[in-house]
Amino acid sequence: MSKNFMSGLLSLVLGAIYFFTATQFPEVTAGDRTGPKLFPLIIGSVAMIAGGLLCVLDRRSGKSKPIEWGFVADRAVWSKILVIMLLGISYGLVLDSWGYLVATTIFMFCITMLINRGHFVQNLLISILFPVVTYAAFAVALQLSLPRGIIENMLPF
């Protein structure tokens, strides 16, 4: 599938879902005559028209460029992306309960071990220094709130 055709298709599908969802909104007119529907309906329509047109034009031009996903050739990249995404989401989930310092140290260590393979000492250093320096700068010096978490009572500030 070509880049343009896929983009058009994406827009067509998103636009249609969006348009349909908007038609389901209740009519409310308390103090506002246009209502919450009209603007989304316009956007949805434009997305569908632009998407459809792009698909048609792409088929007719005959000069379409194929998408290079690289699922096979760049397998290593895709698997790293997947791991980073999982790590990022888990980081978010434990951040409040474990606290910024603990969670960030672990997160940074995993990330550095993934990206910066074979430099154990360097990675350990980065993953300890990064949270400590940022915590000192933002939470201590600038007094922005970062979660203290499980080591709440051990922190002097």
């Binding site: 058009g8 827009s11 969802t21 506002d32 603007f39 989304p40 997305a47």
Partner: peptide
């Protein structure tokens, strides 16, 4: 298309005028 997607993202959430939930 990119603009429409940006607008779609911007309309997610409570509508400031009527208070109804959208998307």
């Amino acid at each position: 298309i990119a603009m429409c997607i940006g607008f779609m993202l911007s309309t997610i959430g409570i509508d400031a005028l009527t208070g109804i939930l959208r998307f």
